[in-house]
Design a protein around this nucleic acid. Structure first.
Lengths: 365, 365
DNA sequence: ATGAAAGCGCTAACAT
DNA sequence: ATGTTAGCGCTTTCAT
């Protein structure tokens, strides 16, 4: 019924509670004989330390929490998976939670219950994946726990590092590609809807400037929604300002742009090229076939974990008896990853790790 | 720094720990005066009960866990959101966890860490959303906690209820629609890859039978992958058995089928119609424009919550002082929901709640 | 109606 | 090297 506790193990092994704890924590010095006895008893009983009790006890905390923006974007799954894998290799346990849920209607709200358990679990580190609108409200958390944000900016206050795609490099790839194709007039659709959007807008403007587009490159404001893309395109068409190419803030918006263009009777890519950002599976569907920037999400996840492991205060792992967790392989925190591509044109603050993206060319451009 | 504990509140309010607990638990009888004093002190201190401590204390457990199959399918977000909303209305707190993560490579594995915290949190109920491949391994959990599965079958052993789309009704809608369009030869692509796939296959066969398709309706085995859909279609074309319509096990597969058909030079819908299942946003993209069955995911989530609330052992809520959680609004567990559509042709076991779906007709069929 | 005390499962000084 | 003790923050008898 009730799962076995440390006490049960102690009784069966004929030792004290503390000794069992010591064995599982890996800390102290335990005689080989007793160690084996304890391990054996634990095995026999099917004992597994209670995480909740562990964390309440405020003791060793080899738990790292991964907070995912929401359940909607499959993009996050890759980042989370990669981060978890790296953390596991370093002997950390991870608990993955989502920051937002859908409310009854169409919107999303901060999931306070989830945030509460996260907080009460007292993880030794936190990785926030994706943009979390109310991130500022989590300052209580981020102040107390070493935090790194992945695939977002929100490098507000007490964030150890922000690991994300090098927007500047990515948009430079895009603009260069378009220029090489003879495109002379290009619009960026996006910019509203968070810091990432703003950063991409800035990166676009800089890239277009550098490539000599001058006034022939401009920004058409839109948020991430389908409707936003639609009305931006409608404006372009109505005011007869249709460019030869649209660079969208991300893939979802790009699809919205394609939809809107075609609804306005503009063919893609012949009438107007479209490029996205994120390298989602959506872009790969032949019917969509969207040229996009692949941010290398796996790597983003991995580096985020790396950055966290390198942070001070993220305690060392334990449970040597447990499995083959293995020692922390000397976290080789690269510091600056994006050194290869477009290293010159990024406004990086301390702790910003930029991952160089690649361009995936498909039919849409 | 350290967040205030029950002790701090007690001290400030000038009462004992127990009294504070009583106030927050809502149980006992506390004098109005002290109640206010406690509430005020708590407010002033910013006190919030520690969930972890609460659950360790094995006491009241108004926490319900929602276990999401994985982070990939945006479909789940709707179900989870709806379930959470209903649970919140009944005064339960929810913690949402994912069951699987991506491993380093392309696969997905059971996230044992997450399962562990779930277990140690000792929720009073569990809602499993989506098909969890290793669900059987969770029997330890499901045996101890009232569980309902949503949008999956896995009604293995000790599951209180399984709330899902009425596949029979859904596929009947599809087959009827195709028949009305004059389709005479139709293939189902799918069937491999879990109980849901198998159930839909059976439902298809039954519906085709009922509509008199006889030998002109058959099943082309495929799993959920793009590659599976591709090879199934390749087989159809190679053996010159191309039907006038393909019914896919879900939207993702349907998109794979469209891709494969077009790669083989078959136009959709003129050369072959295609229908999906799930009502995802993918299907709504004009470039895809997939006719699909909308399972009403919101309702699935809501009913799952309802079923859980109706289950014995799912304790009543508490925290009367906290906010406006409100009393449990007499959970009106409908028992059988799918009574309206295709109620005759479903093999329903005890506790199965079938939600009637609707057909969304688009360009693909 | 209120407080004292025991205990949830665990860790961490502190003693031996 | 091992056991004893005192918590972590909370709920819950059991007295009063």
């Amino acid at each position: 019924m009730r799962s076995p506790t440390i006490r049960d193990v102690a009784r069966v092994a004929g030792v004290s509670k503390s000794l069992v704890s010591l064995v599982f924590t890996g800390g102290g010095t335990v005689s080989e004989e007793r160690r084996l006895r304890v391990l054996h008893a634990a095995e026999q009983l099917g004992y597994r330390p209670n995480l909740v009790a562990q964390s309440l006890s405020a003791g060793r905390r080899d738990i790292v929490a991964i907070l995912v923006s929401n359940l909607h974007n499959p993009l996050f799954a890759e980042i989370v998976g990669a981060a978890k894998a790296r953390l596991a290799a370093a002997g950390r346990r991870t608990v993955i939670l989502s920051a937002q849920v859908d409310d009854g209607a169409g919107g999303a709200v901060l999931d306070r219950d989830n945030i509460d358990v996260l907080r009460d679990l007292r993880p030794s580190g936190l990785i926030a994946v994706g943009t979390i609108p109310e991130f500022a409200e989590l300052s209580e958390l981020t102040a107390a726990i070493p935090t790194v944000v992945a695939s977002a900016i929100d490098a507000t206050q007490d964030v150890v590092a922000a690991v994300r795609t090098d927007d500047a490099a990515g948009l430079d790839l895009v603009v260069a590609h378009l220029a090489a194709q003879g495109v002379e007039r290009v619009a960026f659709v996006g910019g509203d809807g968070g810091t990432v959007a703003a950063a991409r807008e800035r990166a676009f403007v800089a890239a277009a400037e550098r490539r000599g587009f001058g006034a022939h490159a401009w920004v058409e404001r839109a948020d991430f929604s389908e409707a936003g893309a639609r009305s931006a395109v409608a404006r372009l068409v109505a005011e007869d300002r249709l460019p030869q190419a649209v660079v969208a803030v991300n893939d979802v918006t790009a699809v919205g742009v394609i939809t809107a263009l075609e609804a306005e009777g503009v063919a893609v890519p012949s009438g107007c090229r479209v490029v996205g950002y994120d390298g989602t599976t959506l872009a790969a569907i032949p019917r969509i076939s969207l040229t996009t920037v692949d941010p290398d999400n796996r790597r983003i996840g991995r580096e985020a974990a790396e950055a966290l492991l390198a942070a001070p205060g993220v305690a060392a792992p334990g449970s040597p008896g447990a499995g083959g967790a293995g020692a922390d392989r000397a976290s080789a925190f690269a510091g600056r990853a994006g050194a290869g591509a477009g290293a010159d044109h990024a406004d990086r603050s301390i702790g910003e790790v930029l991952i160089p993206p690649t361009l995936v060319v498909r039919a849409s451009a």
